[in-house]
Design a protein around this nucleic acid. Sequence first.
DNA 1: TCATAATCGAGACGGTACGTCGCGTCTTGGG
DNA 2: CCCAAGACGCGACGTACCGTCTCGATTATGA
Lengths: 197, 197, 197, 197
Amino acid sequence: MSQARKPNPARRSERSRRAVLDAARALVSEVGYAKVSIEAIASRAGVGKQTIYRWWPSKGAVIFDSFLELSRGEDGVRLPDTGDLEADLKTVMRATVAEFADPVFEAPVRALNLEIVADPALADAYREKLAGPVDEAKKERLRSAQRAGQLAADADLDLVLEVLYAPLHQRWLHRSGPLTPEYADALVEITLRAFAP
Amino acid sequence: MSQARKPNPARRSERSRRAVLDAARALVSEVGYAKVSIEAIASRAGVGKQTIYRWWPSKGAVIFDSFLELSRGEDGVRLPDTGDLEADLKTVMRATVAEFADPVFEAPVRALNLEIVADPALADAYREKLAGPVDEAKKERLRSAQRAGQLAADADLDLVLEVLYAPLHQRWLHRSGPLTPEYADALVEITLRAFAP
Amino acid sequence: MSQARKPNPARRSERSRRAVLDAARALVSEVGYAKVSIEAIASRAGVGKQTIYRWWPSKGAVIFDSFLELSRGEDGVRLPDTGDLEADLKTVMRATVAEFADPVFEAPVRALNLEIVADPALADAYREKLAGPVDEAKKERLRSAQRAGQLAADADLDLVLEVLYAPLHQRWLHRSGPLTPEYADALVEITLRAFAP
Amino acid sequence: MSQARKPNPARRSERSRRAVLDAARALVSEVGYAKVSIEAIASRAGVGKQTIYRWWPSKGAVIFDSFLELSRGEDGVRLPDTGDLEADLKTVMRATVAEFADPVFEAPVRALNLEIVADPALADAYREKLAGPVDEAKKERLRSAQRAGQLAADADLDLVLEVLYAPLHQRWLHRSGPLTPEYADALVEITLRAFAP
DNA sequence: TCATAATCGAGACGGTACGTCGCGTCTTGGG
DNA sequence: CCCAAGACGCGACGTACCGTCTCGATTATGA
């Protein structure tokens, strides 16, 4: 039998790992997700193809990892808490809108979304590693608001986040409308009205 | 100069067109969007590859067109209007939830979403040809509700639709939570509260 | 049954015929025999592909015909007859050598030879329509020499021509040596010695 | 710049090389030179197309190589030397005539000639690798005859070979006459008369 | 301390699909 | 009925990458 070779992570070359992830990120920005090939990543990284196949199961996984790498060290995300929920959320939402408007984020973030839609395993990893911590921070802020009586005490916080963010994400993904600060504000106002105490 | 040989649509073979679209639809269902190749479509359709390249710019466009074809004749979409907005919306939303739960729709609809995210041109076509008419029907129902005083008269109807549907779509796309009738109801209630007169 | 359609030559368009042959000749010179396509000939000639397929059985036949066309009117080829066979033959052979050295003849004549080697039907046509008349003129000169006692009376004239020309043709076809006036002379001398009375 | 990826011959797979050449030879015999495709060779050889393109520049080169392969080990070609030049040459020429009459040789040898006429590089390789050694053996026999006073001491041996063989080759290539033992004899006699001491 | 085993770069391999070219046939509309 | 135009099914082209598979040449322990 062809023994599912298990490489020994202890011997893994850190230098190669970084080179691969850096090359992956650069290529996604330059040519777009669909046109990135493992061959190109290996070549750009100065790495043998086998080294990639040894440590990652798919192109999507490599690129996903390259995003993960970016967000390392961003631990302890924390939302502003001035006591004024509406103001705080508008600050955050306006920042999100601005981020999406940045063309530098366009290619990689769209690539990330493609992977998530296409691959359930990556979707799981995304929720756990990337979205999870951020969502938790947001929910923490919402809980603080619940304690302050600015939000229905029995509101389903996951649902609140969906109502708040999903319209924005969809509009960006589908390019179905402009992403403006006013739009950010409107989403906050609507959400707060929907989940008012 | 880029030549851009323009085929003469008058001579286009209707038989080939149908065969290609049918084959495309079948293959997406059978093997999934990513694994469908133009070669396979041509072969299945009993058509030369050139015939596909002559009339469609990309695999995505073929598959997109195959969806379009499905929804032809569905003109005059019309939402129920019993006078009770909440009940009507819940009916519609529950139906939507059920549709998304149907494994037969899984592959093609996910494929459609991948195309839209990846290709602006297809996103435009989607909004105009597929989403547009349906959205218009929904907005018609909402306008009726506005006249009946069940919805804020100044509500931005596009926004209402986003708040109503985007959470559902996102949950499905990201597989980030269960799609239940209760979830459908919850979205309707929240939306109505947010946009109450 | 699919009736081997027999076109009516009476209705044939002379204008198209010329255009095709001219285009064929031009293309062989420009891109070489192998790279000439019927599609290109038709396009260059401003003629429908069917018109070519209607009147010629193959690409080779078209190109062959284009050579035939060139040699029309060259009727009554006649070799010089000064009474001195050796001098006359040297004149002719030197002219032949010079012709082969002309780069303008290179592509078409090589193409012609390729056709002849590859296609027995064209080889027959070649012998009958192109080589035949010329060979007959040569043999006429040789017969005159036989009468003058400069050549063995029982010499097989076809064989004489082969000994005279085949080495030259082969050297040119295989590029296996230089084609010089001295070479032409040498072939004449050898042949005359071989077939001396 | 033209990149010109150079594969590393050290890593070349001998098994693939043989399989390709064997397949090429078989296909030429079966369907004829013109109808052999690289795709068919690769498929028959159980080899990726890229493996062919990596090591050979053209279909002609593959097929040519397949002939070369056949003649390996045929080193030390040597003509009979009974002391009687005329008898020896007739033996050899009759054998050559018989060879050309063999339908098994028809397709491949004609293919070889087409390549040589069409491609100067292959013509060079032909002269060096295939014709060269054989010609050298023939010239060796002729030198022996010169020493024995059966041939002019100052005869240009390349020319002798041309006069001897070119008529035969041409007759076969152009199918312009029958190849009989008598024809072989006649060529020998003529040549000996032409180059008599 | 050194052999020894895994990882590394490189890249050849059998394949699949790409997007293009040309084949020979067929259809359309004009003269 | 011929003609120009050109769409059609088909087959092959030469290229790009896929994922697997050797190759030496470094490492980096653990005997």
